[in-house]
Amino acid sequence: MAAETPPFSPVIALLTVAAIWDARLEHELRDLGLSTRKYALLAHVEATPGISFSELARRSQITVQSVHTAARSLAEAGFVVDANAHAGAASDLRVTPEGIRLLRAADARLAALDATFGGGAPTLTSALEGLHERPFEGSAASE
């Protein structure tokens, strides 16, 4: 007797699609010295100069410790600076000119992947765009 095919799950399908495209973006960013997480953090810092580690963690949905580790790596590479880098002071993270150049290179690679994805799945792209504009009410993302 053959196993019954499980019902379609849009959540599982979306997670699968997300994992595939996350891996593709990770591959595109690797030679720039970025991971998808570091790219996202760098983009958040550029969009909100002076952002704190705790706010960066909240927006990225990762721990403050993980943000500190990634930010330290980005700072050592010369892509971000903490204008208040002394004990007891709130952080003041900012992207350096080198970090901005890196972000533009990463943005171009993301745009190419977006074009590939959008060309292959225009209906899904439109649906995702609609979700971005109005997240689900009552979901953890909207809280």
Rank of each mutant, 00 (worst) to 15 (best):
L102F: 03
F53H: 11
H68Q: 12
A43W: 02
V45S: 02
E76Y: 08
P7S: 13
A121R: 05
V11K: 13
H27P: 00
S35D: 06
L113D: 04
L124A: 13
R72Y: 14
E133L: 02
V80C: 08
R104Q: 13
S66N: 11
A71F: 06
I20V: 13
G50Q: 08
I62V: 14
E28P: 11
V45Q: 01
G50T: 06
F79P: 04
A106H: 04
D22C: 10
L34P: 03
L131D: 05
G118M: 02
A23D: 08
R24N: 01
T125F: 15
L110A: 11
G118F: 00
R104C: 06
A40Q: 12
R104Y: 07
V81H: 06
G88L: 03
G130T: 05
L25C: 02
E4F: 06
L42T: 06
E76C: 08
A75N: 11
R58F: 07
A85W: 08
R37C: 01
A111N: 01
P10H: 04
L124N: 05
A13W: 13
S66I: 01
A111L: 06
A19G: 12
G50P: 03
V17E: 09
L124T: 11
E76K: 12
D82R: 09
V80G: 02
E133S: 04
P10A: 01
A83L: 14
T36Y: 01
A19W: 08
R101S: 14
G78H: 06
R72F: 15
A2G: 03
S9A: 08
A127N: 03
Q61S: 10
R134N: 07
H44W: 10
A3L: 11
S35T: 15
K38M: 15
A108N: 06
L29T: 00
R59D: 14
S73D: 15
H86M: 11
S139G: 10
Y39F: 15
E28R: 15
I62T: 12
F53D: 14
S91Y: 01
L128I: 08
S35W: 03
H44Y: 13
L102P: 02
A19K: 12
E76T: 10
I51K: 07
R30C: 01
E143Q: 07
A140P: 12
V81N: 08
A87V: 11
G88S: 07
P97Q: 06
A23P: 04
P135N: 09
D114E: 11
S142D: 14
A127L: 10
H68M: 10
L56Y: 03
R104H: 13
